[in-house]
Nucleic acid binder design. Sequence first.
DNA 1: AGCTGTACCTGCAGGC
DNA 2: TGCCTGCAGGTACAGC
Length: 280
Amino acid sequence: MPELPEVETIRLGLQKYLVGHKILGVDVKVDKIFQGDSKNIIGTKVVEIKRVGKGLIVELDNDYTMAIHLKLTGQVIYSGRDLGKVLLSNKTGGNLPSKYTHVIFTLDEKAHLYYNDLRKFGWIKVIKKSDVQNLPFFKEMGPEPLKDLTFSKFAKIIKGSNSPIKIVLMDQKKIGGIGNIYANEALFLAKIDPKTKTGNLSEKQLNKLYGSILEVLKRGIKYGGSSDINFVNALGEDGNYQNHFLVYARKGEKCINCTGKIEKIMLGGRGTYFCPECQK
DNA sequence: AGCTGTACCTGCAGGC
DNA sequence: TGCCTGCAGGTACAGC
């Protein structure tokens, strides 16, 4: 499901509700998802929730940590304390635990944390704090927009490659956090054809693109992520950005900038949406 | 180094 | 209605 704005939305929710809870038990229903020894987290307290690109890191009050990657359809849903009215999305598979719930954390104060994953691509790794930065996924992650990706770094990364720009934007080793939706959205906003080889981009276009990336990511966070397919926040609620897509999933519709019609092509094996009129 | 295709899984929309 | 194909917010790995 999730790209940077979706994972950040989950992080904000977990930071608010999960932090302070003690983990009393772990019930693993699908072994391949939960890696490491649950003994190392039982009895610990959650201290802080961090995000690295599309990855989540749950900091505990001992030497261990839980690294989580949701891949396409992972969900992390908190239930407990007094949350008021929560509108559980139908994307959770029904009441929790559902048929998609593969790991259940029992917390103190009668709370629970559910890991759901329709396609079971995601993972939770219990590892030593000191080993987190050695996980290949985190170790090789490039700088992140909204964090340490300055324009000069961005320009250097883009110029150091000569692949289609959309593929470079989605390469986590080059830039961390951008996935298919936001790559499409940013290129549309910057009026750049996704197929453009990076070497053919002008300084002006790079500038525009840099700003567009920041803008679409911020917008994604503002609307609580995109629930086009499977995403729900840390309380199991839908996000809203899918109602504000500029170009993603709008094949055949009219461009919001011009008289063009949105087209869909495959680029690097991924669905790519763009307006052939204004993205040139 | 950097491409391509394939694998991991399940559900669902669209075509016939 | 129902079957069949292809596609879905992602990464990892094998083989050119």
